[in-house]
Amino acid sequence: MIDKNSTTLLSIKNLHASINTTEILNGINLTVKSGEIHAIMGLNGSGKSTLAKVLAGHSAYEVTAGTIEFEGKDLLALPPEERARAGLFLGFQYPIEIPGVANTQFLRLAYNTIQAQRGKDELDPLEFDDFVREKMKLLDMKPDFLDRSVNEGFSGGEKKRNEILQMALLEPKLSILDETDSGLDIDALKIVANGVNQIAHKDNAIILVTHYQRLLDHIVPDFVHVMQAGRIVMTGDKKLAMELETRGYDWINADQRLATGVNA
């Protein structure tokens, strides 16, 4: 997918972030260009979700050092909703339930907000209904998910599909999908991966946070990064993920000295 006309979408330099004074991210460097697919792997607790949430602007985290640029603009200066409107999307590891709010109402408000930002037409409820039903077919989702409350009582896999549905509706420039594959059965994994592949094109980019090679069988990454203790300690291509699958993470510690700072 890498194109020679690609532009830099995201540029993270020396990012440090903490929560309640505990430092979680400790010197992240990462550059993502349009058309690229990146995978971030790493042990539980290494800081993958934290990185995702810091990118999206979660107020619980404090950025203590470093910079993040999104299309050349200072991302850290923007509140979360403006980051979203600028085209940054986070597929949540644990999607949030909002009781009493119909999914379709939420989806339409999100869609229209982003459309308005892009100077495009907003859709009324009927138009939106047609539009969203088409997108749901792509993900093999039943229409009754429109009338149910946002994520409430959805199974783990259903929540993940609902996240990808939002990605499909909002057409973000950069999508960070945090463990979208966990909780999906094998068929659902294929459907979701297929959906993501259809959304991916040369002008947008995707960061996949995952523990498993099986997702990367379907969505082939250009780069694979390994996180450890709040840093990217190794970067490679899709073969690195396969190696991790067979060898685990232990060997990286030994090799870490060689690998620091590879991706800048």
């Binding site: 909002i98 009493g100 709010v101 907000t113």
Partner: peptide
Amino acid sequence: GEDQLFYLSQRGIGAEEAVSMIINGFCK
């Protein structure tokens, strides 16, 4: 929930609209 607000804002929805949505859902 801070998390509910964050979720809605991550989809581009402004804080006031987000609160009103959550509260209206709660009172539905």
